[in-house]
Design a protein around this nucleic acid. Structure first.
Lengths: 207, 207, 207, 207
DNA sequence: AATGAATGAGATTTCATTCAT
DNA sequence: CATGAATGAAATCTCATTCAT
């Protein structure tokens, strides 16, 4: 398995298998519980195999993160491209995010565990976006687009983006922990809140 | 120190000192970085002293959690008692939470680190509320009160509570990581969103 | 055991004990055989104890090197101070070096193992003198002094120093490996060679 | 490749290639740095290939040693055969040794790394000559021949041989480490020392 | 009240080697 | 002829905890 070479079928299958086991363990047992030994045990292989396919634990975790991020980003981009009006775009953004979460709760939860816990030798977060968070910036831009087009009310796009993102991000943890969590209802409520928070409107008592 | 005995002044001072150092380390270096050795080093004492005042690491972390929770709960309860209308109460709830966060960012962040990472021997979260989360239930109740009184629109109180809580909870991490985070602006925006999301209103284009 | 503090008696005794065991193992089993496990086993303690008294394997090995170097340097300096003429100084240098070797064969051999094998993360020798080798420079200076005073013949001091040092350095390995090695005879022969190589003289056939 | 069979051309070419890479790695990264993985990487082949051509790491290292030894021995024997007088023979020995070192510094250094570090399962040196060291014995015999013929002074042939050998052996390390090492000057100085140490002479002040 | 000393469990990682293809 | 896959042993190091003083 040399760098720059096309991975064989077996190789990419094994990598996928190991990454999936890592995701399982991370979702179930958290960051500290996700030792190579545990991941290997779950995969029914020896620790060494993990290190044969990944150059180290860091590499494995980074691979999980970029893999899941990639798939999520693709799903969202695809969904957004099917809408034009800012309101529809925001709604699609929320809906796709939550829908992806529903089908990939463990993956997302695993990524959250990694991103919020992994730290380099210097003690700083390994996966913290340096400078601006691109995920947040993207959502912020969607909000600004709606303001520029006049569809949206005046608001602080940056901070509203944070509010919406946090409402999305909280879900993966809940889905993993609480099996009775009603994602459909949550989605409806969040869509309602987002609409109320963005679209220009008058409160009743001001009439 | 025997069980049931009143702690001496020295004792409770030492406990507080150790807890504060634990909070510092947790906020700076995260859960995995918060070893007893590091906490003791920061306090300028030996590991043994930590274990003299706390029965173990679990005990220390639990004490930090309950201490901070207690103080936060008190601050919030006090603030809420000064308002009567549901709208004012919710606003006070948000404002007090965020204000407490501002002054106790490290503490809250430490608690978040503990609650989201600490696990028992069986691998389950040590600090997960079993059954209903009382913090969430409290906020939910405030929302329902507003609905019952007719002040608030019809919404899904449980899920709206989750949305609001997540918008509050995301702040401690940001305050620790991003020194330029503008809490005042965030508070304004969140108050606006909460009002829009709760108070009965009509959107303009529906008029 | 905090940095900068005076070591307790127990502590320095343990450190000495561990260093001695490390020296034993290094002399007997070589650099690769000198694992922490083996050193601890020899000392009748657990691996953790070694790491309690030394911050890591590197620290232990560095301590051994500087300890032995220190004692050797002191012995040599003391001996040299008792002689004045360049010829006597060189002879004393050789004699003291070999004498020290006789009594500290294992120590010196251990240091040789460390110095010639230990490498940093970048792959370079950890204990290589950067720039000029001070040990060699010292001997070189002794030779030059003899030349300046007119006692010694014209020779290439730097390279002669290398020849003499290598004749000294080879001994520790032989002493450890070959118990029948006759150090006294070797010393006599080396002294003879050094004298022949330094003192001004005429060969018989040139007369 | 069955035992006793003549190796094919490809086979011996591959073996040579692998041995050369092993020599490179040993000279650059030392014994501990010379893992099969690193050697294979340097050769652009997989670890398995190395083990296909050599029965194990030990076999590879042993092959390197005997290959280099063989070539060195041949060069020296050839050179010696061109001289008759003991003085000329010794000079040729020194000159040829150092000349060989100059052109094969890495090889010799690699062999030194192997010989001084490789150990069997029992912890003893794998390549230590059991009984008398033939290399040393050879040089010793040259010295004795000169004494028997009356060309050389009275000295302790065994120990003088050790001194001369050590002066030769130290060079490979220096050549690898210190690119500014002046081998020609060193050779001149060592030849001078050897002559002074062997040839009968009178010191000036004894006249 | 405080601490130094010691330990065992477990984490990541390296490496030579075996096996099937 | 060559390789990818897999493994187990061993190495260094971290950490919470216990014990005697």
């Amino acid at each position: 398995m040399q760098a720059g070479q096309v991975p064989t079928f077996t190789e990419s299958a094994r990598r996928t298998q190991i990454m999936n086991c890592a995701i399982e363990v991370l979702a179930e047992s958290g960051y500290s519980g996700a030792s190579l030994a545990e991941i290997a045990r779950r995969a029914g292989i020896s620790k060494s195999v993990v290190l044969y396919y990944f150059s180290g634990k860091d590499d494995l975790l980074a691979s999980v993160v970029s893999d899941v991020y990639g798939r999520a980003g693709q799903a969202i981009a695809e969904s957004l491209s099917r809408h034009v009006s800012p309101g529809d775009k925001i709604a699609a953004y929320v809906r796709t995010n939550l829908h992806f979460l529903e089908e990939h709760a463990a993956e997302i939860h695993a990524v959250v565990e990694i991103v919020s816990n992994a730290r380099g030798a210097d003690g700083t977060h390994s996966f913290a976006p340096q400078g601006e968070d691109p995920v947040l910036a993207h959502l912020e831009q969607l909000l600004r687009d709606g303001q520029d087009s006049g569809d949206f009310r005046t608001f602080d796009a940056h901070h509203l983006a944070i509010i919406i993102r946090s409402a999305i991000d909280t879900v993966s943890g809940r889905l993993v922990v609480d099996p009775s969590f009603d994602l459909a209802a949550y989605t409806r409520e969040l869509l309602a809140v987002v609409e109320l928070a963005t679209v220009t409107h008058r409160t009743e008592d001001s009439s």
